[in-house]
Each structure stands twice: as C-alpha cells, then as structure tokens.
Design a protein around this nucleic acid. Structure first.
Lengths: 213, 213, 213, 213
DNA sequence: GATGAATGAGCGTTCATTCAT
DNA sequence: GATGAATGAACGCTCATTCAT
C-alpha cells in the first residue's frame, strides 16, 4: 500500500525507520494544526531530521499526508482483530470490538479528526484508497453483527445502517470530544451507547446474554 | 452575532447585501476546495466583486470563514422550527424534525462537510461560538425527544446520547455521502434510520403511533 | 506575439510599461550571467519592482526568458528596414543592411550571445517561434541579395548559403568578440568582411558599383 | 591540461578511466539538456557510478563542465591533423581539413552547441583556456590557408577573417542544424560552401586545381 | 464606496556537496 | 576506493493584505 509513495532511498529498513519518524511527527502536527498550516520545516524539526531528508523518502507534502492518514486508519483497523482475538462469544466479540474501536478513536482524537478534516486534501485516487480502507474496517464490525444475528442474539437487523451507527458512534466521541469529555468518561459513553443501540436489536436470548456481560 | 466581524462600511443594508454575496461565494468555494486552497481572489471573482471590496466588509480571510460557517449552521438551525411549525403530535414533530435536518444536511453536502473540516481553522473564541451554535441546534432536537417522552410515546431515554445519535445520523449522510448515495435515497435512509433508532425507544403506545405515521 | 504570455493585469499601457522594465533588467542579467544563474530576485531588484509584481505580468521565469529573447530579436529585425529605408541602390541597400545588422549585434554583444545560449532553455513551442523569427530576419537579408542579383550586380548565387554566411558573419562579431575586439574595429571588420565575401559574387558591373561606394 | 582539475585518487590509470566515464556521460547530458539542468545525480546514473565517486575525481560540478568542454574541443582539434595526414597537395589539404572539421562538428551537434552555450558558465581562467584552445584549432586551418597562398593557389587573402569564415561555416551546420538538416546533406553543405567561399580567393592556378579535385 | 496593482514574507522543493561506512 | 544517505542554503512562486486612485 505504502509502496504507492516513491522513495529515493531503497533500503527497506531505512524507509521504514525514516518514514516512521516523519509520519509520527506529521500526524501530531497535522492533527493539531491541520495540513495546510503545518509546514515541511515544522515536520522536519519535530521529526529531528533535515528538510532534505523528508524529500528522500517522499515526493511531496501530499505524500506525507497520505502516509499519515493511512497509518492512522491502519492502526485503527488493526486494533479490532487484536481486541477480539481469542474471544468466542459473538455478543462479547461485538461489544469488545465496539469498545476497542471507541478506545482507539478516543485515545487519538486529533488523529481521528485529521482523517475527517484532511482526506479531502488528497487527490482523487488516494481519497478513494482511503475510502476503501474505511469500508474494510467497517466490515470488521459488520462481521461481528452478522455473527450475533446468526447466533440468534440479534434480531435480523439493517446491517449496513447499524454498522454505520456504530462507526459514527465511535467517531463521534472524537469529533465531539469538546462536548462529551465534560459529560462522561469514555467507558460510560460506551456503556450508555451500547445500551441505547443494542436494546432494539437484541433478541430475548440476546438480552439475557447482554445482562450477563 | 455577525457584529463580531468588523466592517469599514457602516450602512447596514449594504453590509447585509455585500456580505451576502461574499459569503455565498465563500461557502461554495470553501465547501468544494477547502478553506486554505481557496484564495480571496477566487472568492472575489465568484462573488463578482473586487478584492478590495471584500476587505471593506471583513478584516481578514478568517472572518469570511467564520461568517460562512455561521451562515451554514444558522440556516440549518432555522430549518427545524420551520419544518415542525404547526405540527402538534409530538412523534410527528420529532420525525419531521429529524427528516428536515437530514434534508438540509443532505442538500448541501459540501456545506455540511465544510463545518466539519474547517471549524478548527478558526481561532479559539470563534470555534467556541460555533460549538454553542451546535448545542443550540441540538437542543431543538432534544426538545422534540423530551416531548415524546412526556407524552408517553418514548421510554425514558438517555436524551443526551439519543440526541447525538440523531445528529450524527443526519450528518453521516453528508459525511459519508460517497457511500450512501450509491446505496439508497435520502428518504429511504431516513426511514430505515428511524426504524432502527426508534424501535428500542418507543413505548407500546409510541409503537402504535409510529405505525400510523 | 507577446500575447502568448499571460498577464494578470489587463491594462495594456501598464503591461507595456512593466514588462518593459522587467525585460530590460532580464536581458541585462541573463546576458551577463545566464538564465539559470539569474534569479527572479535579481531581476526584481534590477528592475526596481517587487518579486510579486513580476508574477502579475508573467506566469513563470521562462516567460521572462521568452519575452527577453523575443525583444532582442525583434529589435534586431527592426534595425534592418530602418537602416535601408530610403535607399534605392540595391548594392548600397545590401551593404547598409549588413552593416546595420553587424552594428546592432555588436552593440549588444551580451544580448546576441543570450539568444545563442538560452534559446534551448525554452520549451519546444517557443523555441520554434524563435526560429521562425530568425528565418524572418534572414529573409530581410536574402531580399537584399536577390535584388542585387536581379539588378545584375551579383552573379547568380547560392542565396540560402550566402545569406547564412552574412548572418553568421554578423553574429560572429558578437560570438567571438573576445577575439575580434582586440584585432580591429567593427567598421574595419565589416569592410574586410564585405571585401572577402563580396568579391566572388560581384559581377563586373557590381565591382564598379562597389568601388564607388 | 587536465591536471588543472584536482583528484583525490592519484592512480593515473584510474583517473583516466573514471574521468572518461564521467565526462562521456556529462557531454551527453549537458549537450542534451544544458549544464544547469543536468544534476550530478543524472551524471552519476548515466555513468554508472556513485555520486561520491564523481567527487573523488573532481572537486565540483564546474570541473565536470570544464573537462567536458575540453574533451570536445580536443577531439575536434585532433580530427584535423588526422584527416590531412599524408596529403601533400595544399588545396586538397585545405579542403579535407574543412570537410573534416565540418564532419566532426556535424556528427556531434549537441557537443558543439554545448561549447557555445556553456563556456560562459566557466570561471574566467578556464574560459580563457578554452579560448586559447579554440585559437589553436583555428591555427590548424589558418596554416592550410597559408600553404595555399604560398603555393600560389590562393590570392593573398585576409587570413584572419577567412579562417573565421571557415570556422563559423563549420559551426553553423551545428548551430543551425534545425534549418540545414532539412535543406541538404552535410556533403552538399560543404560542397556548396567551399564553392561560395573559395571562388573569390582562388588564383587562376587555384581554380584549375580546384576543378580537378 | 469600490477598485485592483503592488508588496514581500514565507512556502514547497531542489541539488551540490559531505562524510560515515 | 567506492558508496549514497544526509544536509540546508537558496530557489521559484503564491497570496493575504494594503492603499493610491
């Protein structure tokens, strides 16, 4: 995926290391101040590298934005399988996935907001890649829902919309952090949210299972 | 509210007229290309005025962004009372409000996205004004919910969260337009969404009322 | 011709005036130091304008080079008709044209050398325009030759090649100024050159006419 | 001559070999794209060596340009003695020299143009060395002319100017390749040129000799 | 009140050169 | 001897803002 971005240096370990530095700095700065306001000089300084070095590993500033957004989305996507690995009960898998996704979005509010603010600053091709990535991540959640339906824990439900409800719920914590932070903890947010969203969806069996969690 | 922005010209009708031109152009351009990518030249050209004229009614580019976002949010907020005016039945008021809010967000996808992308480009004070405005709008929805609860149509519900669920649902149509546009009409989206979100919330009485709508 | 170059300002007198300043400075600096070594800042300083002003009248540095070369070639081309205007005798016209062309090339050695050094720095289309311009100028000389042939003053001669011989002779004074300057005056150069080049070409009648000049 | 350029490596065979690679690549690239547009990276890649290696045999980019121009001029100068070696008849020697010089200039148009475009990019000292080299080469032609005069084949002629006429004639094929290429072959060019230039210069004896060639 | 030519700080980017390996 | 990753000064160019008309 990241091979889309051209590098003048060809040693893979070096690419990984240097891009790591650059992207880390970029996510912080883009997240805090936005893409256009952040200069390459800012990134170089924060990453403790020279301006020239950045251009050895990237062909322009937009490349940095692309890599930054991809890194954020990838790390978010990775967190779901990691969280539910080893859990068998479908309902528990679902709840754990949701919580994990909320947590990872909530831990890096700026990064989450970055993906909303600046995806449009990418050129079309790359914007589409980002969207595909989002769809992939959503499928992880959709699969959990599907499993719950199959297990008779959820009523047959509008999966497409329900998935987006979950996703928006998770993003909302970051997008509206200024509001929620003062009202409740993330844990409460997830609890209350699951309560609200799950009630209409749980079967009788599901309700019993949910009560046990 | 808009008196926060200084104008060199003092004739109120002129301010209204000229700012109207400027802001209309700005919303279109900021919405399409983003705030930083759009130049004052672009706005002047689109608004059919000179660069200098803009600076007679505004003191810098950020003022234009502020006025643009305020105008978008205000027009959205206005649409809710307009829609439910004259409707008495609480459930119908609620459903109409939701649909109206989805419609205005959906009719001006770029404008809606603009508020998400560029509010952070405002300085703190103004960002806070925008947030207050959002809270005000949300209260319009919250009030509808409250009324339904009072009327025994909704179970006692987590109003704060339920409101945000509705709001995010409305925004999601714009934020994820690239996805939904291909899957369903806005009308279907609202129908399916209300179904999903209302089921867990309606009382027995509410369910009967909902079926009749 | 110069309408090929886009200007943000549209007032023709302003374009003429400002481009005049810019091109004058550019010819001096490009001529002395070369195109790539000269910076836009250098040109702005020498022309007593700001950097930004240059970009109001030109879209990039190459435009400046193009306008500079065109101006040099045009002024050279203009000098020939000016010099022979009012002269009727074909041989005298020819000799005057040659001398005028040598003079104008010799008065602005750097400018002449500039056209040799930097035409290749233009993109293809413009390079071709420059070549067309050169061909046009050469035609002015070729016409003089033709007239001498018709008048029985020149033997029927290889006009294409003879024209180029004259042209290269004129350019050579500039291209090899470092050599000729120390050996003779431009006047002597032209006298000796005409002698050398004309002898094989003059008819008996022509020789008598030449002796009288 | 080339000892003017400092090398960090001191093994002469290595210097010769490596510089050979570098200069060959440089002549090609400088010739095609110009000195300033060509990067050291480009040269290294084309020469199949590393960037660092170039700086072992040369102290800066200008050294490369200098060596490149010297190499071009030297190879041109060498071609004249090679061509006329073994020929005794002065007129034939002259004609052969002219043709050889035209051929070598015509075979490497880009290289010839390079010497015109970029000699000015050298610092003064080196520019003078180049000029001396040119004078040396011209002397080879001048000597041929002198011999023809001595042999009574040429009228006593303005040798300085006649030499330059020949030289410019030879260079013109390269400098105006865009024109001549479409009009005639190099062979025709030389034939027609000699005809034009020799006529005024040949004695009666010379004319008979020329007719026999 | 309206215009738009003029300014110049500051951006993204390049590339000759160095030096640790 | 050979490499090429790293550096950063310096370039071309943009655009928010001003101000004379």
């Amino acid at each position: 995926m990241s091979m889309i971005v051209k590098s003048k240096v060809e040693v893979p370990e070096l690419i990984e290391k240097r891009r790591g530095q650059i992207i880390k700095a970029a996510i912080e700065l883009f997240g805090k101040h936005g893409y256009h306001v952040t200069t390459i000089r800012d990134i170089a300084k924060r990453a403790n590298v020279s301006i020239g070095l950045i251009y050895q590993y990237v062909s322009d500033k937009e490349d940095v934005l692309f890599l930054a957004i991809v890194e954020v989305l990838d790390s978010y996507a990775r967190s779901i399988p990691e969280a539910i690995d080893g859990i068998d009960d479908p309902l528990k898998r679902f709840c754990t996935a949701v919580r994990a996704y909320c947590v990872v979005n909530g831990e890096r509010v700026d990064a989450t907001v970055l993906t909303y603010r600046e995806t449009k600053s990418l050129r079309k091709n790359r914007r589409n890649l980002i969207k595909e990535k989002e769809v992939e991540t959503n499928k992880l959640i959709a699969a959990c829902i599907q499993d719950c339906v199959k297990a008779g824990l959820f009523e047959p439900v509008d999966i497409e919309l329900f998935t987006y409800q979950i996703v928006m719920f998770s993003h909302a914590w970051a997008l509206k952090a200024w509001r929620f932070r003062n009202l409740m903890s993330l844990d409460d947010y997830v609890d209350r949210g699951l309560n609200l969203m799950l009630n209409p969806v749980l079967t009788a069996q599901g309700k019993r299972a949910f009560a046990r969690l």
